[in-house]
Write a protein that binds this DNA or RNA. Structure first.
Lengths: 340, 340
DNA sequence: ATGAAAGCGCTAACAG
DNA sequence: CTGTTAGCGCTTTCAT
């Protein structure tokens, strides 16, 4: 058996409660006593058992991380990075992250995460678009809740968001500086607030520069995967205005667009420039390498964890909204507009 | 406060221990009593608190999942899928997965995962190449241990492996059937047993068909990322024999090779065929779509969880070695050899 | 500043 | 088959 607080107490010749005070970093311990206890702890290689602490203090030191199944499989590299960010940050504060997924069509009787039922988390982080019913349930359970990359007007929650609007602004400005004026926007799932904001950022920046967007927006796709990018680009060719650049709603969509361009023997970036959003691995694996708007994914996760812990430890659920700027990354898929 | 076993006992007019017996599915409870208890449980929406169970039973119902940091960032989509496989399977058995990473250059005093120190897991799964020191420590702690996609001759452990050898055999045979005979193998990190086996599978299948591999193997790269694939292919051009097909040690390496081919204006698959290994998302995002050897990643994770639970619940650590076959996936990057 | 004692919610002998 | 009882290892009043 590993040593317990009792062993430590004996070794340091103090009482159990004194050891407990030291473990929990409470102030009212004489320095000398603290030293003694700390020595005993490190001598014995003592580590408090979580289960015991949890039972006594009614706290789990776990944070639940929930995303929808299809988000995690479709946009995997994006959410994996966010998750990793949460894990690293949680470690610093001695929390564990419990990750789980829920189906897109969520049924609260079937799919409620176990850690919610078992009250095995002190707070919850939701990433991406999630069922609003799930938000309701978590709020009713009175658990600190942080949304990442999602927000809904009907629910008041803390959230950590990407500056999508600024992101596509950056993208459009970069293209304009390269002499482009006929710039298209493609990608689906406008129902996701982030995608919608990306579209708005594009539109506003275009209009601010007196550029037309008519017949240059193709967002009727139901999703944001490779095929949607491909289809949207096909539509752009069939029904759209002429263009020399494409802003894609994310990197995956951009790769679909690239496929379409290649099929039509259009050179990137000589004939058409293309820029993505997110900065996932694939940007470096396609040919040419994809310019994009970088999202600080690990940071999003880390900040969410800090907010969650704030909520857990302060007991006052203050609602904070944090917006993280995005950053332009220029690679090989964007260049001067033809004849400019 | 959520209901406790006490509330259930009162409601069902039985004792605490009877409720406990029901919860734990022990057999010695009269059917009628069980029904009564179950009704009370569902009426109250009772869920046993993990911390309490854990403390009383000295069991956590957690399984630790450890991988090296650079594995998780470099070969992220691969390991993410394995991790997801563990999570889904663990759910069925009421376990949680605690994921954490350790640095490649592992120092046991600095980097020992918390859940090991705090004895907060009942078993451990290691994925990919991990420090052997870590294996030592886990075995010394007498925790059931399962390796995924790794094995070391110096340690006796249960493991779940990919049939790498058969995988590259499949790849080579597919190419031979398409008229290729000058087939190269590229990719680095032969120190990883999996990569080494992939090389061996290639070699043996080539030799079995009386094909030469001389000056067709380029594996001096230190890693298996995009650049290594690129560099290995450059070497192949500079120092190698002529070839019409490439077997890459994984998909990421394959994308690097594709970059090199494109730079040299070599068409895939008209001039050179290329096939990867793993079947990660990027296969569908590059142009042309990459033929590959599919690894059942979620399955690897799921089986590892079952093995771990076997070990936890049986208390007898039997060493099992499970090998999962790989599968040929033909897409657009492989075709008939030129002039055949 | 430190110690004594109660108890968190459950499991696990043991009795009956 | 069911109930009684004693902890599991820690936190947390409450005294001192």
């Amino acid at each position: 058996m590993s040593p317990t607080i009792k062993d430590v107490a004996k070794k340091a010749s103090v009482s159990l409660s004194t050891v407990s005070l030291v473990i929990n970093g409470k102030s009212n311990v004489r320095d000398e006593t603290r030293k003694k206890v700390e020595a005993a702890i490190s001598d014995l290689g003592f580590h408090p058992r979580r289960a015991a602490r949890g039972l006594a203090s009614n706290k789990t030191n776990n944070i639940g991380f929930i995303l929808t199944e299809d988000h995690f499989s479709r946009a995997e590299p994006f959410y994996t990075k966010i998750f990793l960010g949460t894990e690293f940050e949680a470690r610093k504060y001695n929390y564990y992250i419990l990750l789980t997924t829920v189906p897109k069509k969520f049924n609260e009787n079937l799919h409620l995460p176990r850690f919610l039922l078992e009250r095995n988390v002190d707070g919850v982080i939701l990433a991406g678009k999630v069922p609003t019913k799930l938000i309701d349930i978590i709020q009713k359970a009175n658990l600190p809740l942080i949304l990442i990359d999602y927000s809904t007007p009907t629910h008041k929650t803390s959230k950590v968001l990407i500056d999508n609007h600024q992101g596509t602004s950056l993208a459009v400005e970069h293209l304009i500086q390269n002499g482009h004026s006929k710039i298209a926007f493609i990608g689906g799932e406008i129902s996701h607030p982030s995608i919608c904001e990306r579209l708005r950022g594009y539109e506003e920046t275009m209009h601010k520069s007196n550029l037309s967007t008519s017949n240059l927006i193709f967002c009727n796709e139901p999703n944001t995967d490779v095929n949607n990018g491909y289809e949207a680009t096909c539509s752009l060719f069939k029904k759209g205005s002429p263009f020399t650049a494409i802003v894609a709603s994310n990197d995956t969509v951009a790769t679909g667009a690239m496929r379409c361009l290649r099929e039509k023997n259009i050179n990137i970036p000589q004939d058409v420039s293309i820029i993505g959003f997110d900065d996932i691995e694939v940007c470096l694996q396609v040919e040419p390498r994809l310019s994009t708007i970088k999202v600080f994914k690990e940071e999003l996760g880390a900040i969410a964890v800090r907010r969650a812990i704030d909520g857990i430890e302060s007991k006052t659920l203050l609602l904070e909204k944090t917006i993280i700027p995005a950053e332009l990354v220029i690679r090989e898929s964007t260049g001067r507009a033809p004849n400019s």
